[in-house]
Amino acid sequence: KKVIATKVLGTVKWFNVRNGYGFINRNDTKEDVFVHQTAIKKNNPRKYLRSVGDGETVEFDVVEGEKGAEAANVTGPGGVPVQGSKYAADR
């Protein structure tokens, strides 16, 4: 997939743990970017499923997906693991 931007910061608008996807609002352009659970590179080690939490600040790359921009290599700011959704089960 073609990389559009790297190391972008954004805020998770919403993320559905059961369906495994959601949207991140970019801090720079204010665009909403699709995020799939497979794009989460550093999950919270205490969580079973990969997820990001609503309102969480994340860092990610933006790539060209089939339906427009989507997030890739999602981590917390500075490459730390994401916090994850409060609806995702703990280990």
Results as ranks from 00 to 15, higher is better:
Thr75Tyr: 05
Tyr48Lys: 13
Gly78Lys: 12
Lys86Arg: 13
Val35Lys: 01
Phe15Pro: 01
Thr75Phe: 04
Ala72Asn: 13
Phe34Arg: 02
Val33Lys: 01
Gly22Thr: 00
Gly53His: 09
Asn16Ala: 03
Asp90Lys: 14
Glu56Ser: 04
Gly55Asn: 14
Asn19Lys: 15
Phe60Gly: 00
Ser85Leu: 06
Thr29Gln: 03
Gly68Asn: 06
Val63Trp: 08
Gly20Glu: 04
Ala69Met: 15
Lys1Tyr: 15
Ile4Asp: 05
Thr75Lys: 07
Gly65Met: 07
Glu56Ile: 04
Gln83Glu: 10
Lys86Met: 11
Pro77Trp: 07
Glu70Asn: 09
Asp32Phe: 02
Glu64Ala: 13
Lys30Arg: 14
Gly20Asn: 07
Gly84Met: 05
Val82Ile: 09
Glu59Gly: 02
Lys41Trp: 10
Tyr48Ser: 08
Lys67Cys: 08
Lys13Ala: 09
Thr29Tyr: 03
Pro45Trp: 08
Asp54Pro: 09
Val82His: 04
Ala89Ile: 13
Thr38Ala: 08
Ala72Tyr: 15
Lys47Arg: 09
Ala72Arg: 11
Tyr87Ala: 08
Gly68His: 09
Val12Glu: 01
Leu9Val: 14
Glu64Val: 11
Glu56Trp: 03
Gln37Val: 11
Lys7Asn: 13
Gly76Asp: 04
Ser85Trp: 05
Arg50Glu: 04
Lys47Trp: 06
Ala71Val: 07
Asp90Trp: 10
Glu31Val: 13
Val35His: 01
Tyr21Pro: 00
Gly10Glu: 00
Lys42Val: 09
Lys2Pro: 05
Phe34Val: 03
Lys2Ala: 05
Lys67Ile: 08
Gly65His: 10
Gly20Arg: 15
Gly53Ala: 11
Phe23Pro: 00
Lys13Pro: 00
Thr6Gln: 13
Lys86Cys: 09
Ala69Gln: 13
Asn73Lys: 08
Lys30Phe: 15
Ala69Leu: 12
Ala71Ser: 07
Thr6Val: 13
Tyr87Glu: 07
Arg26Met: 08
Glu31Cys: 08
Asn25Ala: 12
Ala69Glu: 15
Thr6Leu: 15
Gly55Trp: 06
Pro81Phe: 13
Lys67Thr: 07
Lys2Gln: 06
Val63Asn: 04
Asp32Thr: 07
Asp54Leu: 11
Arg26Asn: 03
Arg26Tyr: 03
Lys86Gln: 13
Val17Ile: 10
Val82Tyr: 04
Ile40Gly: 01
